[in-house]
Nucleic acid binder design. Sequence first.
DNA 1: CTTAATTTGTTATAATATAACGTTTGTTAT
DNA 2: ATAACAAACGTTATATTATAACAAATTAAG
Lengths: 134, 134
Amino acid sequence: MAQKQEYLSKNQQIVLNLIEKAKGPLKAYSILYDVQKKGIKAPLQVYRALEKLIKIGKIHKIESKNAFIACNNSECEISKATAFSICNNCEHVKEIKNTKLSKYLSNFQDNSGMKYKKYNLEFFGLCKNCKLKQ
Amino acid sequence: MAQKQEYLSKNQQIVLNLIEKAKGPLKAYSILYDVQKKGIKAPLQVYRALEKLIKIGKIHKIESKNAFIACNNSECEISKATAFSICNNCEHVKEIKNTKLSKYLSNFQDNSGMKYKKYNLEFFGLCKNCKLKQ
DNA sequence: CTTAATTTGTTATAATATAACGTTTGTTAT
DNA sequence: ATAACAAACGTTATATTATAACAAATTAAG
Ligand SMILES: [Zn+2]
Ligand SMILES: [Zn+2]
Ligand SMILES: [Zn+2]
Ligand SMILES: [Zn+2]
């Protein structure tokens, strides 16, 4: 479990702080808007920070939403096995921590002869709250 | 297995034909370029056709690539359980048909109380061909 | 036929993401 | 300390992906 220490740069830290205190996934341009007071002025500065944070597993991209969320899984230094639950009604998103699921998918093999190094899974449905209100 | 007959409109049929004869996923603006000779002139005409084709399960969107691929699975009238393998080298994409996998994921439950109605899974790795060349 | 629903055509614009360039800062090895 | 390299930064411009808004035309259903 030796964890590689990663020193974040100023912009990376600013962006990560924002994403970590957010309740849900954030969009790049909403991040940009929020960090302007900290001196980040251009989209590229945000996208570069996001790219690095994804690479080291601090955040993940929710592909179906083009949005970014803090990692909720201590085993995610590199984001090579991610799963999310997404509510279609309130847009609530949560990273799924489930050892059985991640083992099943990490070991998955089909007949294509392809060896998978990475996966991303997105589940959609209604969260507990929204189910009650229906 | 009663299959609901869907009559496609002109634009929908044009776009579907193109996607079905393509070897891999196509991007919206590349589709637009290719169908201009058929009279489709604007992005919206393509996006509207794509939206409908997705809805009835004739095609799927590869979220990580913003690209669209023909369905390869006869059980996919509605795209509520999709899985793809994606080669990181040659970008080859294939829809995974695997009953065990789809059963496992369709029945998946975690402790969140959420009942999932839909999922999308994308596997990444090296395809057989690209593995040999390394 | 009439009404409703879907699809179309068109223009404009929004939202998401990257290219290219030169500068600055941080790390590593002599 | 300083040269050499890599990473991050700042900035401007531009590419790519996707939707809003509105009116006309076509198609399905009663
Ligand atoms: Zn994670
Ligand atoms: Zn909800
Ligand atoms: Zn399919
Ligand atoms: Zn390949």
